[in-house]
């Protein structure tokens, strides 16, 4: 199993811990600025990475915008922790980006996850 494959499995295991309470959605500054599009929230971004990793979504411009517009401000994590779930949401999004960034820099428009 190569490094990316192992990371993919670890990330999916982390995403499975999310109980979809969506408390992290309202507090996200990008969600507020985009007038309520859930893809621009911690929960939405975790879902996007999950479905990219499982192959249900294909990596395109809209998804790139959603993933790379995360501010990494960790406001979602404060709420997640206060609700007892304790997911490091920004860290998970960052790890998803790490899987993507190398391919994006090499492949540009044709990059795939």
């Amino acid at each position: 199993m190569n490094r990316d494959e192992a990371e993919r499995k670890r990330l999916l295991a982390e995403f499975a811990k999310c109980r979809s309470c969506r408390f992290c959605v309202d507090v996200c500054p990008t969600y507020q600025a985009s007038c309520g599009v859930e893809s621009f929230s911690g929960y939405g971004r975790m879902q996007i990475i999950k479905y990219l990793l499982t192959g249900l979504l294909e990596f395109d411009d809209a998804l790139t915008y959603c993933l790379y517009s995360c501010l990494q401000c960790r406001r979602c994590e404060v709420v997640c922790k206060s609700k007892g779930q304790n997911l490091d949401i920004c860290d998970l999004i960052q790890r998803g980006r790490r899987l993507l960034s190398g391919r994006l820099a090499r492949g540009g428009r044709h990059a795939k996850l």
């Binding site: 411009d61 809209a62 790139t64 915008y65 994006l104 820099a105 492949g107 540009g108 428009r109």
Partner: peptide, 14 residues
């Protein structure tokens, strides 16, 4: 949102 993939790719490279 349009061309985000290429935009990010270019930002990373630059």
């Amino acid at each position: 949102m349009r061309n985000s993939k290429l935009l990010i790719s270019q930002a990373l490279k630059t």
